[in-house]
Simulated scan of single mutants.
Amino acid sequence: MTDERLCWLILRDELRERSSRLRFLGRLRAAVGGVRASSAMFEGDLRREHTSAKMSAYAVAVDASAQMLSPDERRHLRTAGEVPGWFRPDVERRYQEMRKRR
């Protein structure tokens, strides 16, 4: 298994949670329940599509950040199953840069 893949597996669930969070209006609609069933299904499809696009962007960011790991960090990654402290903020920075370019 590559180091890039290992980093992805370590962060995947955390990033999935982050990318699937409903925005304020989505939470409000869900709480009020005023959306018709067909409209809710359509919004669910759009949300899943949006989440998938976000996860793809996060995957690219994780891969790019993983390429910056030092040999010592790679050893720690493989022995402890942890990414270095700078890794998560770097992934988020790269992700935000990709979003700005769209």
Rank of each mutant, 00 (worst) to 15 (best):
V32A: 14
F24E: 08
R29F: 10
R75K: 13
L9G: 01
V62M: 05
R94A: 12
V35L: 12
C7Q: 02
M41F: 08
Q67W: 02
H76T: 11
E73R: 00
R5L: 15
P84A: 10
V32L: 15
E4F: 05
E49C: 02
R21E: 08
R5T: 15
V32N: 05
H50A: 11
V62F: 04
M41L: 13
G26K: 09
E17H: 06
G26E: 14
R23I: 04
A37C: 01
E14L: 10
K54N: 12
K54H: 12
E92D: 15
Q67V: 01
S56E: 11
L9E: 14
R94C: 07
R5H: 15
F24C: 00
V83T: 14
L69G: 02
D63N: 11
R93A: 15
R27K: 12
A66D: 03
E17V: 09
R12Q: 10
L9H: 12
Y58M: 04
M98V: 03
L28N: 05
V32D: 08
E73S: 07
L77P: 05
S38Q: 10
R94V: 07
V32I: 15
L46K: 11
P84C: 09
V83A: 05
A31G: 13
G44Q: 06
A40P: 01
E49Q: 11
S56L: 13
R47D: 12
L22I: 00
A61S: 13
A30E: 15
M55Q: 07
L15T: 04
G33Q: 07
A80C: 06
G34N: 07
A31T: 11
D45P: 00
L46A: 08
F87P: 03
A53G: 01
V35I: 11
A37M: 06
D63Y: 10
F42K: 15
E92A: 11
E82W: 06
T79E: 15
